[in-house]
Structures are given as structure tokens and as C-alpha cells.
Write a protein that binds this DNA or RNA. Sequence first.
DNA 1: TAGATTGTTAATCGATTAACAATC
DNA 2: TAGATTGTTAATCGATTAACAATC
Lengths: 207, 207
Amino acid sequence: MVRSEIPDIVVGRLPLYLRALTRLQNDGADFTSSHELGQRLGISSAQIRKDLSHFGEFGKQGTGYDIASLIDALQGILHADRVWPVALVGIGDLGHALAHYGGFTNRGFTITQLFDKDPTKIGQRINSLVIESADVMQASIRKARIKVAMIATPADSAQIVADALVQGGVLAILNYAPITLTTSNGVRVQHIDPVIHLQRMAYYINE
Amino acid sequence: MVRSEIPDIVVGRLPLYLRALTRLQNDGADFTSSHELGQRLGISSAQIRKDLSHFGEFGKQGTGYDIASLIDALQGILHADRVWPVALVGIGDLGHALAHYGGFTNRGFTITQLFDKDPTKIGQRINSLVIESADVMQASIRKARIKVAMIATPADSAQIVADALVQGGVLAILNYAPITLTTSNGVRVQHIDPVIHLQRMAYYINE
DNA sequence: TAGATTGTTAATCGATTAACAATC
DNA sequence: TAGATTGTTAATCGATTAACAATC
């Protein structure tokens, strides 16, 4: 198994498989099949089997997949078998919502640092975390060996923040600002912009 | 131009082009090229030209694209040349953040209705909007001819909410609940789950 | 004019799917 | 055993890219 040869599009589907399997498990199921999983996800069973085959053999002919062990395997592959500390930059409405969100920790991530550049916010608490100044961000994340960060600043600040995060050692950035970020090689960036999705769907509405 | 023949993956890139063009315009530029646009987006210039060619001819040899008219064209294609009223269901932390977000309206959408099933929330105001009961949702969105909705409920309620939205005439759903929704044909669904993106990136971090 | 850039064609590249032997 | 489902192969399908004539 050579990691670099696995298509990124395949990697992108693994978290969906993991999420669906976890839900099946919560619903009390012990086994599932590529067919059942595919139906739930709107993906062909062949594609699921093909995707998994990049990483090993996880099923049994006739019976399908043991849900618990496939979850374990996928968590290992995705490095979701630990809890990554995450820095969150930009504590506006969205930043608050992300800081309060309880769904990160049991899926491999936990927000451990909050940053903002607004002096009136610095020092405030959310849960047990204190909002720190953006000025100390780079040093602080380096010291804490943070590899994962989320940007929830306005668009104008996002690229500058991203540059500082990368300088501080961050390797993965989830960007909520409505702008495409540029980063050096080796740094992963994913973008979340609700309007992009809304516009994509509005195309198909004929009115 | 036959709409149904245009690949969805092409449609999915048009909002990115539109966003980048708007930013260029705000920065004072009048013209751009497929090369410049591609560099900003991390996409090849050939792909941008090919994508646009599905919808017509928008550029000039030698000079590239007039930004203002390409923005106009893309807004028309994406139906972002109007302001779609949007229903938002589930007014927790994320719902509040979305309701307060000021970035929708100038990009084609505005939240006009809020719903929650928690009796303590119903009747509360956010900006000038009143949170309504989920019980009246279906009738209310039908009356207002709402075609676009956002779900920000917990995972357990999301499918039920989606079914009701579709019954009420909604054709496009942006789902923030961490679950894959099933809908009838003709209804578009897009999912936003930050953990999916984080896991996808964590795969590449070797630690 | 000379340089730049488009829109389009054809080739390449990669992803998805159908089919089935293997086997639980 | 009979039925079900895997993992894998080969074929199909679709998307991306390179190249260039056209032309501003």
C-alpha cells in the first residue's frame, strides 16, 4: 500500500463511509454490505468495494463487512483514531458556533485554541478556552504542535491568517472565509462556503 | 445550449469562477484571462475556457474576459441574478450564526423564515425574523413559495425535516446535519460537514 | 504589425461500472 | 448445500489537458 498512489477522490469518500458506518452501528447493526452502504450514500456498491480494496481486504464473501472492524480500519487509515488539537481563528458568530459544537471530539478533533484580533474579544472565555491575540498565534500553535486549523475570519484577513498558520507549522486548514486560499505545497486546504453550494443547486431550479 | 447535458462537475465550478471574478472586480480590475483566473483558483486555464464554452463565448482573443460582463453572464446562468428566499430550520448555535451572516444577500439568497421545534425558541426574534414552530413549516414555506432551505438541526431530525421541506415544495436543500439525506428525484441536496473535510485532510498528515 | 489569448479539437488520462470467479 | 457477497479484472465512460488556428 503506497499512500501517495491512492486517488484523492477515493480518500475523500472514506469519511463518508466512516460516518455512515458509525450511524449503522448506533442503530444497532453489526454487519453491512457494500450494497446497503451504497444505497444509503447514493454510491454504487462496486465503487465502495473498489475504494476499500486500495487499503486491504475488509469483508467476507457471503456476509459482508463487520461494522466495528471496518470502522476501526477506516479510523486508522484516516488518522481519526486519535484526537487532533485544532486552532480556531476568527471568533465571530460562526467561530462561536464552531467552538460550541460538540460533534468534533468523538470524530477525531477538538478545538484547543481560539484566536481573534479584536482587543475586545481577547481574554474572553468560551467553554474553558480563552481567546488569545492573533499576534501570539504563530508562536502559540508552534509551541502546542498544532497541525490542524480552522479559519472563520472575514475574507480580507483569511490569506494573511493562513500564511501565519502555515508558518506556525499547520498542515491542514479548513477555511470558512469566502475566498480561495493559496498555500505552499504539502499544506492541505479545504473550503466551506454555503453560497457556493446554494448557487450550484439554484442552477437547476427553473423559475 | 441544452442544460441537461452540462456535467454537474462543470456547474459546480461556476460559483467558484463567479466568486473569484467578484473579488477581482472589488480589487479594481476590469479584465482578466483564463490564465489569471486559473492561477487564483488552482485550476488549469484550459479547463476554465472549456467550462465556459458550454454556455457561450464570453472572451476576446488577445484581451481575455471583461469581468463585469462575465459576472453578469454567470449570475444569469446560476440564477444568482435575483434574491432567493431561504428557509432555515434548526436555530441552535449554527442556525444563529447563519441567520446573522451578512454574506448571503449580495450573492443571491436571503433567509426569510426560521423554524425550530423547541417551544422555548418559538416566537423569539433574530434580526427582524420570528422563529416559527416546525409544525407550521410545511404550510408556511408552501405559502411563501420557498424553493431553497438550509437544515441546521441535529442529525436525528434532519431526514424528517428534509421530507417535510420537500413536501412543502422545496427543490434545493443545504444540509449541515452530519448525515446523508435521501430525497426524491428532482430535489438537489448538498452537504456541509466540517469533520468530513478535516478527516480527508488528516489522512495526509504523517504523525 | 506583433503579442496575447480565446474557443475548440483530439489525445490523454483517470474514474466508474459491469461482470464473475472465489468463497464464506 | 444454496445463496449471498466479496475483491478484482477488463471494459466503458467521462473529464482533463495539450495544442493550435483564429483573431483581437
